[in-house]
């Protein structure tokens, strides 16, 4: 069953189109991911779905019902975790959760019990009575996620949940997301971490400059890159002088030199026969120390589809995360 169905969603800001007629759906119980660089339109899409931004064009259906322009009606069904923790600094962890429960009309007993349960689930019991301002960045993010699910929403929106926090906490948060998914929560996740998207999401959409450029299950997206076979060789000498001969002898392959002249990547649209290659390396006094068949990764699919270098995208985001500023895209 489709929990969310978005058709031709568009957002213009003073003549600039931030989100350009995007269409997608999210099935009940799945984690759907939006992967894209800064400024791609990820947060703007979430804002339109959750009522923090007005929709310029298109339609939004939630559980089959059209909620376009009526976000207040839909907000009770949503849990929203923004890219920056937005709880109350002066309240304790427990008080924050209880307050968030009250915003969704939960009665006193229910919200208190649920808050205690969530603090336990998220490993924050010991910090329950500590003010939010005394929490570390990772703890803050955890509590913000807990606040997002206090009312047991139908769908949880997670905007860049691990940006700007250390590796250990990021791992814990990914585990928590996985746990929520196993318990049946439908999750809409935006991220710029390809491994995170690959590990957590059942389906993904690549979004660039406000447009969805590719969408599908992780397997479907990977299939697109499987047309190319790659073998990486580590050699015992300089390959650059032998490159032309190799290209002549193996016309179906392309030879790319890596970071050093002794690292070679062989690409071919058909299967690569290793023995003739190794033999020619040996004949050229280039002993083969390592030969590694490269399986296509989601990263390659992303780079190939969008032309965006992931490393740069992540570095840019991490810098912003470390500065403490949220990233809006």
């Amino acid at each position: 069953m489709k929990i969310i169905e978005v058709k031709d969603l568009q957002k213009d800001f003073n003549g600039f189109t931030a989100v350009d007629r995007v269409s997608f759906h999210i099935n009940r119980g799945e984690i759907f991911g939006f992967l894209g660089p800064n400024g791609a339109g990820k947060t703007t899409t979430i804002n339109m779905l959750t009522g923090m931004a007005r929709i310029t064009g298109g339609r939004v259906k939630l559980m089959g019902e059209d909620y376009t322009g009526r976000p207040k009606k839909a907000q009770a069904m949503m849990g929203i975790v923004p890219d920056e923790s937005n709880l109350y600094e002066e309240l304790t962890g427990l008080e924050n959760l209880i307050f968030c429960g009250a915003l969704y009309g939960m009665d006193k007993e229910h919200r208190r019990a649920r808050a205690a349960r969530l603090l336990q689930q998220f490993g924050l019991e010991e910090a329950a009575e500590r003010p939010f301002k005394a929490y570390s960045k990772g703890m803050k993010r955890k509590l913000t996620i807990a606040a997002g699910i206090i009312h047991e929403p139908e769908i949880l929106f997670l905007d860049e949940p691990t940006t700007g926090i250390d590796v250990a906490f990021a791992r814990q948060i990914r585990e928590l997301i996985g746990e929520l998914h196993r318990k049946g929560t439908t999750i809409f996740l935006t991220t710029h971490y390809i491994e995170e998207a690959e590990r957590l999401c059942q389906r993904l959409a690549f979004i660039v400059r406000g447009k969805i450029v590719r969408e599908g299950t992780v397997e479907e997206l990977m299939k697109e890159a499987q047309g190319e076979n790659i073998v990486n060789f580590t050699l015992g000498g300089d390959f650059s002088g032998a490159r032309e001969e190799f290209a002549r002898r193996f016309p179906g392959c392309s030879f790319k030199i890596g970071k050093t002249n002794s690292a070679v990547s062989v690409h071919s649209s058909s299967a690569i026969a290793l023995f003739p290659l190794v033999k020619l390396f040996e004949e050229n006094n280039l002993p083969v120390y390592e030969a590694k068949i490269v399986r296509p990764s989601l990263e390659e699919v992303f780079v190939k589809t969008t032309g965006i270098e992931l490393q740069k995208m992540q570095e840019q985001k991490d810098r912003k995360g470390r500065k403490g500023g949220g990233t809006r895209s």
């Binding site: 923090m52 907000q75 109350y88 915003l103």
Partner: peptide, 14 residues
């Protein structure tokens, strides 16, 4: 400024 007001705007109340 600290974005906690956003939380109120996202709550299902008018």
């Amino acid at each position: 400024k600290n974005r906690s007001f956003e939380r109120l705007l996202l709550a299902p109340i008018s």
